[in-house]
Computed example of a mutant assay.
Amino acid sequence: MPLPPPTPAATTATPPSVPPSAAAPRTGTAADAVALLAGRRVTALTGAGVSTDSGIPDYRGPDSPPRNPMTFQQFVGDPAFRRHYWARNHVGWRHMRRTEPNAGHRALAELEARGVLVGVITQNVDLLHEEAGSVDVIDLHGRYDRVVCLSCGHVVSRASLDRRLDELNPGFVESVGAAVGDVEIAPDADAVIETTAHFRVADCERCDGMLKPEIVYFGENVPKERVARAFAMVDAADALLVAGSSLTVMSGLRFVRHAAKAGMPVVIVNRGQTRGDPLATLKVDAGTSEVLTELSRSLPPV
C-alpha cells in the first residue's frame, strides 16, 4: 500500500513486528463465528489476506517473502527511488486491472445487501470490494487507480497516466516481459523489475509537479476525515469482523482497540498470528474466502 514497493500503509515509516500475544484469544471455527455474530450488525475491516485468492500476494502472511517497503520520504526525496517505483508500477498495475473479486469479497457484498454488514473498512487499494458489489466501502489507504499531484492536488486516473508513460517509454513493458505473470507483483500494483535506470517519469500536466499514486505510504498519515468516517462505521455496528489482516500497523489496529474498549465483540479471521489477537473475542485461523462464505451462507438478515 513501493528497491522494495511503497506499501499502502499506515502512520509509521517502519512497521513493528507482530509481538507474541499477551493473552491467547478464544480460537474457533467459522461455525463459532456464526454463533457469535448472529443477530448483530457487523462492520468488516479487511487486509491483504482477503485478496490473496484473487492472485494478489499479501505483505505479511505466513508464506510472504520479507519486504522492506519504500517510505513517503524516500519517494519524494530521491529521484532514483521514484523512477524505480514508477517503472515497476507501470508493469504491475496492469496485473491489478486484470484481477477479479473472489468468494470472500462477494460474501461481504452479500452480507451488506442483506443488512448484516454496515460496511467495509479496507486497508487494500485494489478496489475489489467495490467490484464485488459492496456499496459502503472506506478505502483507508487510498486506491491504486488514481494519481495525485503533490504540488497542485490535481487528480488523474492511473489509466491516463499509463498512456503518457507508454509514450515516454516505448517498448518498456515488452522489454521486461509483456506477460506480467512472469514478474513478482506486490499488493499496491508494484512489480519487481531490476532494470529501471533509463525509465522516464511523467510530471503533472498542469504544473509540472510530482505525481504520486493516491495511496498512503509508510511515513504518511491517513487523512483525518477518512479515519473519522471509519470510526463512525465501527460505532454504527454491534460487532467488528477482521478479515485477512495481521493488524501489524496502527492504522488498522486502532479500530480493533476501539471496538474492544467499547465492549464490542471482535472476530478475527486470519491465517497466522495478528497483533490484535489479545483483543479478539474469537480468532478463526483459516482462509478468509471459506470463512466469509460460510458467514454469508449462515448469518440471518438483521
Rank of each mutant, 00 (worst) to 15 (best):
residue 13 A to T: 15
residue 292 L to G: 10
residue 152 C to D: 07
residue 67 R to T: 12
residue 147 V to H: 06
residue 299 L to H: 05
residue 60 R to C: 01
residue 158 R to Y: 01
residue 258 H to L: 09
residue 235 D to I: 04
residue 183 V to Q: 15
residue 97 R to E: 15
residue 154 H to W: 08
residue 107 A to S: 01
residue 153 G to Y: 08
residue 239 A to W: 04
residue 245 S to D: 08
residue 99 T to H: 07
residue 264 M to C: 11
residue 33 A to D: 03
residue 271 R to A: 13
residue 11 T to D: 14
residue 115 G to H: 00
residue 297 R to W: 04
residue 288 T to R: 06
residue 122 T to R: 03
residue 148 V to F: 04
residue 201 V to D: 06
residue 232 A to L: 03
residue 271 R to I: 13
residue 241 L to F: 06
residue 115 G to N: 00
residue 244 G to I: 09
residue 193 I to C: 09
residue 35 A to M: 14
residue 62 P to V: 05
residue 167 E to D: 12
residue 114 R to S: 02
residue 113 A to Y: 02
residue 141 H to F: 03
residue 93 W to C: 11
residue 124 N to Q: 05
residue 55 G to I: 02
residue 118 V to H: 00
residue 217 Y to T: 03
residue 138 I to G: 10
residue 106 R to Y: 00
residue 272 G to M: 10
residue 234 V to L: 06
residue 147 V to A: 07
residue 207 C to N: 00
residue 121 I to L: 01
residue 213 P to G: 03
residue 229 R to C: 12
residue 62 P to Q: 01
residue 251 S to W: 05
residue 33 A to P: 11
residue 131 E to M: 07
residue 259 A to P: 07
residue 19 P to T: 14
residue 98 R to E: 08
residue 161 L to C: 03
residue 126 D to H: 08
residue 219 G to C: 02
residue 20 P to C: 12
residue 195 T to F: 13
residue 267 V to H: 15
residue 70 M to A: 11
residue 7 T to S: 10
residue 89 N to K: 13
residue 277 D to P: 08
residue 234 V to W: 04
residue 281 T to P: 10
residue 282 L to M: 07
residue 89 N to S: 07
residue 254 R to Q: 15
residue 266 V to I: 10
residue 295 L to E: 08
residue 52 T to Y: 04
residue 5 P to G: 12
residue 170 P to H: 06
residue 188 D to W: 14
residue 19 P to L: 14
residue 112 E to G: 00
residue 47 G to H: 12
residue 33 A to K: 01
residue 220 E to H: 03
residue 273 Q to H: 13
residue 7 T to V: 10
residue 168 L to Q: 01
residue 156 V to L: 11
residue 259 A to W: 08
residue 222 V to Y: 02
residue 257 R to L: 15
residue 248 T to A: 14
residue 124 N to S: 00
